[in-house]
Design a protein around this nucleic acid. Structure first.
Lengths: 208, 208, 208, 208
DNA sequence: GATGAATGAGTTTTCATTCAT
DNA sequence: GATGAATGAAAACTCATTCAT
């Protein structure tokens, strides 16, 4: 009984927390960290400002938590995409597709995500960058190992270091996603993952 | 004599302006627009704050001028690189090399540049984004036309729309540059442009 | 209970607001709008400056509210004085007396009042002047109609247009009040309203 | 020769001084003391700002000089009007007329004049008020003595103390002038001085 | 435990005044 | 003697954070 009661309270707390984070995400994404006040967030989330501070130590902390939690979901999803096939080509295909879907569903977050992973929002706070970039680096290594395996198995030609290939592929995806975020009508990120992968797979010039 | 005197003053003015912009660049790059105060900039530039305001209408204006002047240099240089050869492959080589050099020489600016072209800094101000992105779009089109010509002349295989190829190549360069900016020791951006171009040219898998 | 609690808070708010307005009035009256800083007002009112801004949008707003609220009381009182009698002569007597009392009790406000109704404070802000002058104009018309009625009823000779008479009487009162404000010892505004009214009623020269 | 040269320089100086004062008057009148910068005045007068400071110790001093010089002219003219006739009634007539003309020709100054004599601009500076008010008091006494003489000679009935009569007449003039300044179209200040004087002379009610 | 009123440090910006040229 | 660039003190206003109710 006690336990259940506590757990119910805990759930309620979680729900409130999510509402706060959602309000914050929507505002940060729309206006940027420095142009959003805690007042504004508390109003949008329909909580008192004091309550906000019960959940998050300060504005920085709120932002940090927001970014890290979402980024975690991102990286988990993308890593999962790489696991969801035996064939390396299929893995990459899954990854490109998953990245597209993920971003499509989280448009407002991507802007912040780009800001953070691209180092653009400088040091809104020092710590955050490091954590999130370490995580991003981990993912790049996972992606690189897919290329490495493919090369080992002679599925891919060794045209560059696996890590470089990982960087290249992820960058291309980001490039297209960025264009799409900018102008969703333009629909820059191709539905068919092979549009992106072909650039990688086929090569521009004939081998002699 | 009069003329010379005037011109000397003008030169002095220019020098001061450049010093202010340099101080601002270094601070914005290090801490981000909102974490730098005009006081700070004026101190770093070793001018009184009032003098800063004689040169720039306000903080926004200072930032805008800073970004636009430098971005213009960037885009001009990159466009020039594409002109500096007859052969399309050579053009791309020039571009990749030029981009690397340009960024190497302007590390502190790149952070801001990424922030702006990647849309990361949200709406620090509305107008700026538009101008700089239009300019970026123009450049992408120029790059795309190199691919288009290469394809027409059967130098390149048509593995994707020229604009997509442009986006892809520029994104890869940016990806590497970003890694390098993050950790200059890592030296992620390859000295030899072909390291990057090979990823493009050769293709991962053998044509059947 | 809830209701009472709310009402108590509301009352507390009102009290604070009045304290702020009182502090502002005393300072504005003593030093003039531009020579008083919000800092100063907040200190005199014994609130933090932020609290001041919770109550008033900005300095202009604070001033506007101050003037308009008090001016309203003034105009209401003076208009009431004109209603408080049937006889026109008695009405004027009431008005002259009321004006004297009103000003005696609000010395520090009169300086500002003169500044505003006399157009002296130029454009501290555009809107205020208009509102307060319109109100002043309305009052002059009310006063004029007393003269008009008096003339219709042959109580007064028609020595000038009623509106002119209103302007003249109000001006004389203001003239004496001004002298008194300048030097309260001199006691320029006569206790007996007839001292002023006689100037009006009797005429300097005998009719022939 | 030397002498003449010096005197020419002196004249040139005077001319410059007048230009500065004229520019200042026009700006102060339009925007108010605190909304006009020394920069602005120097630009309007077409002198360097440093030159302005050669002529006037500081902004306050410039204002003070401006007010006092013009006020002097005013008071001299009005006093002269009172001398320009033998008959007291004629004197008053001259005065009312002169005041109207004076103000008509110096509209932009009147606003400042009202501000100062009405105590409206509080203490833009402490000293000014005193000097100018003393001067104003002197004039009121001169005017009062006209009434006194008139009464002695049985030209006027003694309906109030001469000083009160002076205050009353001047106040009425000011009241009309104020209305006229506010809305020059309305033309509140009557061309014929008797319109104003009648209010004084005839009296509202018949003597019994 | 939730609330939101109160706080005041910190930011941008203006402008009177000085002084080297 | 004139100039106007440079100065920096001072003002309006914001907003993250605290804490009494």
């Amino acid at each position: 009984m006690e336990n259940k009661n506590l757990s119910r309270r805990q759930k309620e707390k979680q729900r409130q927390r999510q509402e706060m984070l959602a309000a914050a995400l929507s505002l940060f994404s729309e206006k940027g960290y420095h142009n959003v006040s805690m007042q504004e967030i508390s109003e949008k989330a329909e909580f008192a400002i004091g309550t906000l501070y019960k959940f998050f130590k300060n504005k920085e902390d709120l932002y940090k938590v927001l970014i890290l939690e979402r980024a975690e979901v991102f990286h988990v999803s993308l890593s999962a995409a790489l696991e969801n096939a035996d064939d390396e080509i299929e893995k990459l295909r899954n990854y490109v597709k998953a990245k597209g879907e993920l971003f499509r569903e989280n448009v407002s977050f991507i802007r912040i995500y780009f800001a953070e992973t691209r180092g653009a929002s400088f040091n809104i706070m020092a710590g955050l960058d490091n954590e999130i970039r370490k995580r991003y680096g981990q993912f790049l290594n996972t992606l690189a190992s897919v290329f490495e395996n493919g090369i080992k198995q002679k599925k891919f030609k060794k045209i560059a270091k696996p890590y470089y290939l990982a960087v290249a592929l992820d960058s291309i995806c980001n490039g297209f996603l960025f264009l799409w975020v900018e102008d969703p009508e333009f629909n820059a990120y191709p539905e068919d993952p092979d549009t992106i992968l072909n650039i990688f797979f086929k090569g521009l010039i004939d081998p002699i």
